[in-house]
Measured scan of single mutants.
Amino acid sequence: MTTFKLIINGKTLKGEITIEAVDAAEAEKIFKQYANDNGIDGEWTYDDATKTFTVTE
């Protein structure tokens, strides 16, 4: 398992979430479901060097 981080730069929600996932594809699926569940819709980026996803509304 690898640790992945999501940085949320939303209009109403900001913060960071860290999860353990098998790979970046699994982490992205989990993070996008979390964002969808919380009404966050924005532009996604991923930095493989730091294993960090960012979503900006």
Rank of each mutant, 00 (worst) to 15 (best):
K11G: 08
T12W: 08
I8Q: 10
K11F: 04
V22D: 09
T52H: 14
T52P: 00
G15H: 07
E28H: 11
K14F: 07
G42K: 01
E43A: 12
D23G: 15
G15M: 05
K29V: 14
I17S: 09
D48Q: 09
M1Q: 10
N9G: 08
G10E: 02
I19A: 14
K29E: 02
V22W: 11
A49M: 06
E57S: 05
K11C: 06
K14T: 04
I7A: 11
D48L: 06
L13I: 04
Q33Y: 08
K14M: 07
Q33T: 09
A25D: 10
T54D: 06
L13E: 05
K5L: 13
V22P: 05
K32M: 04
K51T: 10
I7E: 07
I8R: 02
Y34Q: 03
T52Y: 10
F4E: 00
D47M: 03
F31S: 05
K32P: 00
Y34L: 06
T50M: 09
K11T: 11
A49E: 12
I17M: 02
K14L: 14
T50Q: 05
I19T: 09
A49W: 03
N38Y: 12
E28V: 15
K32G: 04
N9C: 03
K29D: 08
T12L: 11
E16H: 14
T12R: 03
I19W: 11
I40Q: 07
G15I: 10
G15N: 11
A24G: 10
N9Q: 10
V55D: 00
F53I: 02
T54Q: 04
E28R: 15
K5E: 05
V22S: 13
G10S: 08
K14S: 05
T56S: 15
M1A: 07
G39K: 06
G15K: 15
K51E: 03
N38C: 01
E20K: 01
E26Q: 01
T56F: 06
K14A: 05
E20W: 03
Q33V: 14
A27C: 01
T2R: 10
Q33A: 12
V55T: 10
E26Y: 14
L13N: 10
D37C: 03
T3A: 07
G15L: 14
V55F: 05
D41W: 06
K51G: 04
M1W: 04
K32L: 15
K29Q: 08
N36M: 15
